[in-house]
Simulated assay, not measured.
Amino acid sequence: MSQEALHRVANLIQSAKHLVILTGAGVSKESGVPTFRDAMDGLWSQYDPQQLATPQAFEHDPRLVWEWYQWRRDLVHQAKPNAGHYALAQLEAQHTGEVLTVTQNVDDLHEQAGTRRIVHLHGNIARSKCASSCQGEPTIIDLNTLQTEDVPPRCPHCGAYLRPDVVWFGESLPPYAIARAIEASQNCDVMLVVGTSGLVSPAAQLPSMAAQRGAAIIEVNPESTPITPIAVAKLNDYSGVVLPQLLDAIGA
């Protein structure tokens, strides 16, 4: 990666009045969080993730689905933010314009690193909610307030099973989250796309949406993706490597 390319990207970001940061699984993977399909190993290697991450799977065998997600929660709990997470949080704190992070990740590593303005498109695996949404969608329940050995635990309001607060196959994204992400993408002048494959919709459409409105798309990814052709600049490295360098270039 040339210093010229780095400083060009730094100037674009520094001059942005409305910056959107879109992050994907690659950012969390650098912290040791397995991607969705990488999580299917060991005891879970016999399963297809699409057999476990659906409302139908939960209805058929709620205990199995809950235990798989509990295993994934334990993996996420052990992970810590990496240099890329911290650089993005610092970028938000230092930037003079508006900055919004839109993430496809279900962990809270961005928040742990200090990011404050964030939209979780696919939910938050650390949270649990009533499967019947008895108090509205979502009805979040703090597991620490429950005294039960039920697996899954049951909602203290209505008795329905609790489930992870994540988006499963066949479900719509949270209306507020996708509406806010679309609005920000349509109004930004720069979008920084970090560690996403560009294959999962509707998040994959956000960069194109921004580019059509005239925004400059900057991609950080060691691999080529469907986003690469519309990017005005591509930093071919891992986020934990390149983002601290980018932050230094902005500071300089």
Rank of each mutant, 00 (worst) to 15 (best):
T139F: 10
V190M: 10
E98S: 11
S31L: 05
R213I: 05
I21P: 08
V65F: 10
L243S: 03
G97C: 02
Q3H: 13
E171G: 06
G26M: 01
H18G: 11
H122K: 03
G24P: 03
V20W: 08
V167M: 02
A210K: 10
F169G: 01
L43V: 14
P229N: 06
L121F: 07
F169N: 01
Q90S: 12
L52S: 08
A16N: 10
A25R: 00
R213L: 03
Q104A: 05
N144V: 13
S2Y: 09
S224E: 14
G136A: 13
C155T: 05
A39C: 08
L192W: 06
A233R: 02
A89D: 12
Q245V: 04
A113F: 00
Y176R: 14
D41W: 14
V20A: 09
Y47E: 08
L100T: 01
L91F: 06
L19V: 06
L22C: 10
D189T: 04
M209C: 14
M209F: 09
P81H: 02
I217C: 09
H18I: 12
H18T: 11
H120W: 00
P222S: 05
P152V: 10
G123Y: 04
P164H: 00
A233V: 08
L91I: 05
D165V: 05
W71E: 15
R213D: 05
A184Y: 07
N236Y: 15
L243A: 04
V200N: 05
T225P: 08
F36A: 11
S2L: 09
G240W: 00
E59L: 15
W66Y: 10
P55S: 07
